[in-house]
């Protein structure tokens, strides 16, 4: 193996250990997604760890949400493979719970809070089986866990943004999945909701489930998450907060948009020095 080209590549840090997607809750290989003629996500590899909370971070337009949606097949991929717990994603749908961005649906839809949560059970209940009292009780329990038990029969259009986000989370809880994928769950919600959501997510992690959030608030990364995945069209870095959430990686991700003064206020991991 003395191929000069490959040696060159090795010199330049281009080689890396092939990801071991075996038991990763979510592993992505060589995924490219484009809107028109510009890649929004280019050749991204990612291996999210089990029993952990991971934040996908990057500047606006860096492809964070696109990466999540394309992995789930909500938008088409130009290339790439996705595995969930070692199996092709199409065969592991029942182990995934997805919380889309709140703005992606029409909240004027004729449904009540409990209706939305029950949607999380549809996959298990099937087409025709009747919803029983046990199902209703399970849905109410999920609402209770996000602090929305008092709003069961409220029309969803009458909720505040934070309450809508909690209902979405309750629906995901009802799915009883092993992998939770959340797209900007903290965007535009009140402080109480943010606390409620993070408590639920931490409880999920404690139960041994994996949580992946598209996240935009750098100030809370170190407090909320164990792992980070930095993306700006390409994968910039990935790893535990302590080693990957560094000033150098943030500079590489955000470019000059992130003033050094701002960086100093962040609760960076141990490897903060560049």
């Amino acid at each position: 193996m003395t191929d000069p080209v490959l040696t060159l590549a090795a010199d330049h840090g281009l080689t890396r250990a092939a990801p071991a997607p075996g038991d990763s809750p979510l592993a992505i290989r060589g995924m490219t997604v484009s809107y028109g003629e510009k890649p929004a996500v280019f050749s991204v590899d990612a291996t999210f760890p089990p029993h952990a909370m991971t934040a996908i971070i990057g500047p606006n337009g860096a492809g964070k949400s696109t990466m999540l949606k394309a992995a789930l097949g909500v938008i088409p991929r130009l290339s790439g493979e996705v595995t969930v717990f070692g199996r092709p994603i199409g065969k592991a749908r029942d182990r995934i719970a997805y919380v889309p961005q709140r703005a992606s649906v029409d909240w004027d839809f004729p449904a009540t809070v409990i209706d939305v949560v029950l949607m999380g059970l549809y996959r298990r209940v099937g087409l025709l089986k009747r919803l029983t009292g046990a199902h209703l009780a399970a849905a109410r329990d999920c609402l209770d866990r996000v602090g929305m038990a008092d709003f069961t029969d409220r029309q969803i259009g009458q909720l505040s943004g934070g309450q809508q986000q909690r209902v979405f989370l309750a629906r995901a809880l009802a799915q009883e999945a092993d992998l939770y994928l959340l797209d900007e769950p903290f965007a535009g919600v009140d402080a109480a909701t943010e606390r409620a959501i993070i408590d639920v997510l931490k409880a999920l992690k404690a139960e041994g489930r994996a949580v992946v959030c598209v996240h935009h608030d750098l100030a809370t990364v170190a407090r909320y998450f164990d792992h980070v995945f930095l993306i700006n069209v390409r994968r910039i870095a990935e790893g535990p907060v302590a080693t990957a959430f560094t000033a150098a990686n943030l500079h590489a991700t955000y470019g000059g948009r992130l003033a050094t003064a701002h960086l100093d206020q962040l609760d960076l991991g141990l490897g903060g020095a560049s």
Partner: peptide, 8 residues
């Protein structure tokens, strides 16, 4: 009525 996805 109510928030239409934007308001917090």
């Amino acid at each position: 009525v109510g928030a239409r996805g934007e308001a917090a």
